[in-house]
Amino acid sequence: DNLVIALHSYEPSHDGDLGFEKGEQLRILEQSGEWWKAQSLTTGQEGFIPFNFVAKA
């Protein structure tokens, strides 16, 4: 599955970004460039995340 774990917390800075906490698990929905579309397994919310803040779970 496309699961990743957050290496750092991220505060959203643009509409459509997904904020998350360090250690949170996310499911990657789309990989494109440096911003990936993801869904939080904690909150169920979707949005874009910086790819370098996460690692394969």
Score class of each variant (00 low, 15 high):
Asp1Gly: 10
Asp1Gln: 10
Asn2Lys: 09
Asn2Glu: 10
Asn2His: 12
Asn2Arg: 09
Asn2Thr: 11
Asn2Pro: 06
Asn2Val: 12
Leu3Ser: 03
Leu3Phe: 11
Leu3Cys: 07
Leu3Asp: 04
Leu3Thr: 07
Leu3Asn: 04
Val4Thr: 04
Val4Asn: 00
Val4Cys: 06
Val4Phe: 15
Ile5Lys: 04
Ile5Trp: 07
Ile5Glu: 05
Ile5Tyr: 10
Ile5Leu: 07
Ile5Cys: 08
Ala6Leu: 04
Ala6Pro: 00
Ala6Ile: 03
Leu7Phe: 05
Leu7Ile: 11
Leu7Pro: 04
Leu7Asp: 02
His8Asn: 08
His8Met: 14
His8Ile: 11
Ser9His: 09
Ser9Asp: 10
Ser9Ile: 03
Ser9Glu: 05
Ser9Pro: 07
Tyr10Pro: 01
Tyr10Gly: 00
Tyr10Gln: 03
Tyr10Cys: 07
Tyr10Asp: 00
Glu11Tyr: 14
Glu11Thr: 15
Glu11Arg: 13
Glu11Met: 13
Glu11Lys: 14
Glu11Pro: 07
Pro12Asn: 04
Pro12Ala: 12
Pro12Leu: 03
Ser13Ala: 13
Ser13Tyr: 12
Ser13Leu: 15
His14Arg: 15
His14Asp: 09
His14Met: 10
His14Trp: 10
His14Pro: 02
Asp15Arg: 10
Asp15Trp: 12
Asp15Gln: 12
Asp15Glu: 13
Asp15Ile: 12
Asp15Pro: 15
Gly16Asn: 09
Gly16Lys: 08
Gly16Gln: 08
Gly16Phe: 12
Gly16Pro: 02
Gly16Asp: 09
Asp17Thr: 10
Asp17Glu: 15
Asp17Val: 09
Asp17Pro: 03
Asp17Arg: 09
Asp17Gln: 15
Leu18Asp: 01
Leu18Gln: 01
Leu18Val: 03
Leu18Arg: 01
Leu18Thr: 01
Gly19Leu: 05
Gly19Cys: 07
Gly19Trp: 06
Gly19Lys: 12
Gly19Arg: 13
Phe20Asn: 00
Phe20Ile: 06
Phe20Pro: 00
Phe20Val: 05
Phe20Met: 05
Glu21Gly: 08
Glu21Cys: 14
Glu21His: 13
Glu21Asp: 08
Glu21Phe: 11
Lys22His: 05
Lys22Tyr: 06
Gly23Cys: 07
Gly23Phe: 05
Glu24Thr: 05
Glu24Leu: 02
Glu24Gln: 07
Glu24Ala: 06
Glu24Phe: 02
Glu24Cys: 05
Glu24Arg: 00
Gln25Ser: 10
Gln25Gly: 07
Gln25Glu: 09
Gln25Ile: 15
Gln25Pro: 10
Gln25Trp: 15
Gln25Met: 15
Gln25Phe: 15
Leu26Tyr: 01
Leu26Ala: 00
Leu26Met: 08
Leu26His: 00
Leu26Trp: 01
Leu26Pro: 01
Arg27Trp: 10
Arg27Gly: 00
Arg27Glu: 03
Arg27Pro: 00
Ile28Ser: 00
Ile28Trp: 01
Ile28Met: 03
Ile28Gly: 00
Leu29Asp: 02
Leu29Asn: 02
Leu29Gln: 03
Glu30Ala: 09
Glu30Gly: 08
Glu30Asp: 12
Gln31Glu: 11
Gln31Gly: 08
Gln31Arg: 13
Gln31Val: 09
Gln31Ile: 09
Gln31Asn: 11
Ser32His: 14
Ser32Arg: 12
Ser32Gly: 11
Ser32Gln: 13
Ser32Pro: 04
Ser32Glu: 12
Gly33Pro: 03
Gly33Phe: 03
Gly33Asp: 05
Gly33Lys: 04
Glu34Leu: 13
Glu34Met: 13
Glu34Lys: 13
Glu34Gly: 09
Glu34Gln: 12
Glu34Tyr: 15
Trp35Phe: 11
Trp35Glu: 05
Trp35Thr: 06
Trp36Asp: 01
Trp36Gln: 01
Trp36Pro: 04
Trp36Arg: 04
Trp36Ser: 02
Trp36Lys: 00
Lys37Val: 11
Lys37Ser: 05
Lys37Asn: 05
Ala38Met: 04
Ala38Gln: 01
Ala38Leu: 07
Ala38Cys: 06
Ala38His: 01
Ala38Tyr: 03
Gln39His: 06
Gln39Val: 13
Gln39Trp: 04
Gln39Glu: 08
Gln39Pro: 01
Ser40Gln: 03
Ser40Cys: 06
Ser40His: 07
Ser40Asn: 10
Leu41Glu: 04
Leu41Trp: 02
Leu41His: 02
Leu41Cys: 13
Leu41Gly: 02
Thr42Glu: 10
Thr42Trp: 11
Thr42His: 11
Thr42Gln: 10
Thr42Pro: 03
Thr43Met: 02
Thr43Leu: 01
Thr43Asp: 05
Thr43Ile: 01
Thr43Lys: 02
Thr43Gln: 02
Thr43Cys: 04
Thr43Pro: 00
Gly44Leu: 09
Gly44Cys: 11
Gly44Phe: 08
Gln45Ile: 09
Gln45Cys: 10
Gln45Ala: 12
Glu46Met: 14
Glu46Pro: 02
Glu46Tyr: 11
Glu46Gly: 03
Glu46Lys: 12
Gly47Cys: 07
Gly47Met: 03
Phe48Arg: 11
Phe48Ala: 05
Phe48Asp: 06
Phe48Trp: 15
Phe48Ser: 06
Phe48Gly: 03
Phe48Ile: 07
Ile49Trp: 03
Ile49Val: 08
Ile49His: 01
Ile49Cys: 07
Ile49Tyr: 03
Pro50Asn: 08
Pro50Asp: 09
Phe51Gly: 14
Phe51Cys: 15
Phe51Ser: 15
Asn52Ile: 07
Asn52Arg: 09
Asn52Tyr: 13
Asn52Ser: 11
Asn52Met: 08
Phe53Ile: 07
Phe53Met: 11
Phe53Lys: 07
Phe53Val: 06
Phe53Trp: 10
Phe53His: 09
Phe53Asp: 07
Val54His: 02
Val54Asp: 03
Val54Met: 04
Val54Leu: 06
Val54Glu: 05
Val54Ala: 04
Ala55His: 08
Ala55Asp: 09
Ala55Gly: 09
Ala55Tyr: 10
Ala55Leu: 08
Ala55Trp: 07
Ala55Met: 12
Lys56Tyr: 13
Lys56Gly: 11
Lys56Arg: 10
Lys56Val: 13
Ala57Cys: 14
Ala57Asp: 10
Ala57His: 11
Ala57Lys: 09
Ala57Tyr: 13
Ala57Met: 14
